[in-house]
């Protein structure tokens, strides 16, 4: 690997501080008992006080069953995975058509797709609850998963449309000429080519799903805890970053990070060593 130029080093430095920078005070805050002006670092740390109080502090609270972080994490991941899978099944064909075909009212349809992003979340949430109540479909995971599809699909279709737009149709034709079946074409040519796009779209979907609060609360009738509902019940309205809020904020980053770590290998193998470049 050749060494980096000065400019590149500076760029990487800013990139890393930009991404990791905000996490530093967050981590410190999550470990503090008392951190006030004018101290640069906490004057009393959490571990100095943890045995003197009957209530669990900071990370003790987060790991205590009372915080409900573990079931909330399970719910969050389960919801995000189901939403992503369903959204992919719905969005892939839609994106393919949008990228490759022209039809009457296409731009209107694209605008329609983005509608849930334009309408305020409050209106979408209460409206959706009203409809769900009609079907007796509320207050559970299924309702939340269906509800999350609404803000996720528009993003996903957008990302996948771009990917399909860049896909060289010639490659699919070549495979067909060589006698590949439709399934084989999809499995061995089309799918590997769009995989990076799928993973990017899936990451989007997971990040969005893990952060939806209002929709989760109303459609779930407050009966299902997720990391977002726990965090929002702590910090909504802004304000002091107490140790538990700071810790929860760090915890809520986990599902996205896990997914990144998980897909990192796949991306590397499929895209960079597969030798399939767009030429």
């Amino acid at each position: 690997m050749r060494s980096l130029s000065k400019l590149q080093r500076v760029a990487i430095f800013f990139l890393i501080t930009g991404i990791l920078g905000p996490l530093a005070p967050l981590t410190i805050a999550s470990l503090a008992f008392r951190w006030g002006w004018p101290d640069l670092l906490p004057s009393i740390w959490w571990w100095e006080k943890r045995d003197t109080l009957q209530v669990p502090l900071a990370w003790d609270y987060i790991f205590d069953p009372v915080s409900r972080v573990v079931p909330a994490m399970q719910n969050t991941i389960l919801i995000a995975l189901c939403v992503t899978l369903l959204a992919l099944i719905i969005s892939l064909p839609a994106a393919k058509v949008l990228a490759t075909q022209n039809f009457k009212g296409k731009s209107l349809f694209e605008l329609f797709l983005a509608a849930p992003l334009i309408v305020p979340e409050m209106a979408v949430s209460l409206g959706m609850l009203l409809v769900f109540l009609q079907f007796g479909l509320q207050g559970n995971l299924v309702a939340i998963i269906i509800a999350h599809l609404v803000p996720v699909i528009p993003y996903m279709v957008r990302v996948l449309t771009v990917i399909y737009g860049e896909l060289d149709k010639g490659m699919l034709d070549q495979a067909a000429l060589l006698g590949a079946s439709r399934y084989q074409i999809f499995r061995y040519v089309e799918f590997p080519l769009i995989l990076p796009g799928i993973l990017a779209a899936a990451l989007f979907s997971i990040l969005i799903s893990t952060n939806i609060f209002l929709l989760t609360f109303y459609v779930g009738q407050g009966q299902v805890d997720t990391l977002a509902t726990l965090l929002f019940s702590k910090i909504r309205g802004g304000g002091a970053l107490d140790p538990v809020s700071a810790g929860l904020t760090l915890v809520i980053i986990l599902p996205g990070l896990l997914f990144l770590a998980f897909t990192h290998r796949t991306l590397k193998e499929e895209v960079f060593s597969g030798g399939l470049n767009k030429s």
């Binding site: 209460l126 609850l129 609360f217 109303y218 019940s233």
Partner: peptide, 21 residues
Amino acid sequence: KTTRIAGTRDAVDLVLTELAA
């Protein structure tokens, strides 16, 4: 079963929406 909310208004809106339905 407790539901921890950030704003009491959320619970009130939930009740009113359910009643409206």
